[in-house]
């Protein structure tokens, strides 16, 4: 554990809880992509199956359980409790275009051909692109609520902080995993455009709207 990893995890946790609390408090999931949330649920499920097979630390296990429950809680709020507020007309990204290629890639580029390893690799590849339906939705509607912008910023920062963590681990532990590093870089690049808008608009008190 290092400071980059800890900040990354806390940023990730903040993002997930922020989204859950926002939907609960406003009784609405307007502007949130249900498709991205479905992809994140698949990501957490396929990655954290190792809760049953390997123990790392209490910290890791608790975080995994929180991520999984928050993710399914968000799906419950979006597709059941506050379903009428779900803006499905603007959530039109075809997620099969992400699910299938990520699955194929996880069979092609993987460390070991075991079920858990392929599922873990799949979760890494799918996570890298899981935000695309959400970003597509923001670009279609041309705007995002401020709280949604904070959610996206925290979620994007998490993987950027993980990149610093991997650099740190490379120098301190001589440890390198190119699968997560390249996927993590792709994931972070996808947020760059949004980061720019967030810094130039939202942090100056303006609403995030596209020209």
């Amino acid at each position: 554990m290092n400071i980059f990893r800890l900040c990354g995890d806390l940023s990730h946790l903040l993002a997930i809880l922020l989204l859950l609390v926002k939907i609960w408090k406003t009784r609405s999931c307007a502007g949130i992509s249900g498709k991205s949330q479905i992809l994140f649920a698949i990501v957490y499920t396929t990655r954290y199956l190792d809760l049953f097979t390997s123990f790392v630390s209490i910290y890791n296990s608790v975080m995994k359980i929180v991520f999984l429950s928050a993710s399914y809680g968000t799906l419950y709020l979006m597709f059941y409790k506050f379903k009428p507020t779900y803006d499905h007309n603007h959530d039109s990204f075809r997620i099969l275009y992400l699910i299938v290629p990520a699955l194929v890639l996880s069979f092609v580029i993987v460390h070991a051909y075991t079920l858990m390893e392929v599922l873990w690799t799949y979760s890494i590849y799918l996570e890298a692109v899981a935000i695309m339906p959400q970003l597509f939705m923001v670009s279609r509607t041309g705007e995002a609520e401020t709280i949604t912008s904070h959610y996206l910023f925290a979620l994007g920062s998490y993987r950027a902080l993980y990149i610093l963590n991997w650099i740190y681990r490379y120098y301190t532990e001589d440890f390198l995993d190119l699968i997560v590093i390249i996927a993590g870089i792709v994931q972070t690049i996808l947020y760059c455009d949004f980061f720019y808008l967030y810094i130039t608009k939202v942090l100056k008190g303006k609403r995030l709207s596209l020209p």
Binding site: S57, N60, M63, A112, E117, Y162, N165, F175, D177
Partner: peptide
């Protein structure tokens, strides 16, 4: 191995 070590992350 490489793959077993990265699994200590989230």
């Amino acid at each position: 191995s490489y793959s077993s070590k990265i699994h200590d992350e989230l």
